[in-house]
């Protein structure tokens, strides 16, 4: 079957997680190109309403497993549900978020089905493939594109001979877009029988200390980001001031987070989140490839840096050469004048 199936994650409050909606948006595009259906799997407890949240994103069929033993994610119960749906439906492509859940579940599924899996994709495309070794030609394979080797190279991976073709996709790299608010799909309950009984006992969650993130840089239209060149946590206050005036959020490089200038949740780049704001102001950021991977899709980029040769300048629309601690106050002043 030419179908694309997405394993959907739930938030603590039992809504479909953003990362899954992003992947469904991409999945819709792929399914249409493949002349197939977009299918989704949702497993949890009391989740009928959550399943309906998927339809506007173009999902045709939602397979729903409703059981109290599925309420908090545990590998084996969710593995049991998903492997059952895949074996029944035989989709051509299966996609997961490259989250702590997706990266736990997807490899176990790929091992069980003995199919190929590519981790942490940043792009997916359909395209032909000529296998040099076998001489075989494939008309339409999933090109799974990911940074590799510490972010120094970009690899395109294909799984020509095994099905489904599986990939985990980084959070924030696909755009979440409603296809049609009135799109109607079907909810299909999964008959679990007694299949959870055997796997329920292996892992018990004793305690969980989970906080919903209160910083959301992913959705911010404007990001003012600081690097190690900001010099101190105090200097980061300038970024907060500018971001506040522009209605944006403060982001940071890994070096700045490691130095304690900013919270973990603000980290942008290969090991942080990927952002695509309308405006990205990079302050004291040299622009290592790992950082650029998380922000180079921004519509407009301004770079403020003392080093004219900084790699960030090569992708900036506007470059300001100067010390952040003198330039930022001036920028804040001019914003004050323009925006009042």
């Amino acid at each position: 079957m030419n179908n694309v199936l997405v394993y959907c994650e739930l938030t603590r409050s039992n809504h479909i997680a953003d990362v899954s909606l992003e992947i469904c948006t991409k999945g819709r595009q792929l399914a249409t190109e493949m002349h197939g259906k977009l299918q989704a799997v949702v497993a949890g407890n009391n989740i009928e309403h959550a399943a309906k949240e998927l339809f506007p994103y173009g999902v045709d069929e939602v397979f729903v497993a409703n059981d109290s033993r599925l309420a908090s994610y545990r590998t084996l119960p969710h593995f049991t549900v998903l492997s059952k749906v895949i074996e029944q439906q035989q989709p051509d492509v299966v996609l997961f978020g490259a989250t702590t859940v997706g990266r736990d579940l997807a490899p176990r599924i790929s091992s069980y089905l003995r199919c190929g899996l590519t981790a942490d994709c940043t792009a997916l495309e359909l395209g032909p493939h000529d296998d040099a070794k076998s001489g075989k030609h494939y008309e339409q394979l999933l090109h799974q594109i990911r940074p590799a080797f510490g972010g120094n190279i970009i690899a395109t991976i294909v799984s020509p001979e095994t099905r489904p073709q599986m990939a985990t996709i980084r959070e924030g790299v696909m755009k979440k877009e409603i296809l049609d608010a009135n799109h109607q799909g079907t909810i299909i309950p999964i008959d679990l029988g007694n299949s959870l009984d055997a796997v329920d006992g292996a892992v018990t969650i004793l305690h969980s200390d989970i906080v919903e993130k209160n910083i959301n840089i992913k959705g911010a239209p404007i990001i003012v980001a600081g690097g190690y060149g900001m010099g101190s946590k105090e200097n980061f206050q300038l970024l907060h001031k500018l971001a506040h005036m522009l209605g944006g959020e403060v982001g940071a490089t890994r070096a700045a987070v490691d130095a304690g200038f900013a919270e973990n949740d603000r980290q942008i780049g290969q090991t942080g989140v990927t952002v695509r704001p309308r405006l990205y102001i990079a302050c004291g950021i040299s622009g290592a490839v790992q950082h650029r991977a998380g922000m180079d899709q921004s519509s407009k980029i301004i770079s403020i840096n003392t080093d004219p040769q900084a790699p960030i300048n090569a992708i900036a629309d506007y470059t300001i050469i100067g010390d952040v601690n003198t330039v930022l106050p001036m920028l804040i002043d001019s914003c004050n004048n323009i925006l009042k």
């Binding site: 899996l117 590519t118 020509p160 790699p311 629309d317 506007y318």
Partner: peptide
Amino acid sequence: PTKVKKIDNIVLSHKESCQ
């Protein structure tokens, strides 16, 4: 099952940057 189809070095595409 997975095959590396292609490897690209990351090349900085130089935008027209306005100083």
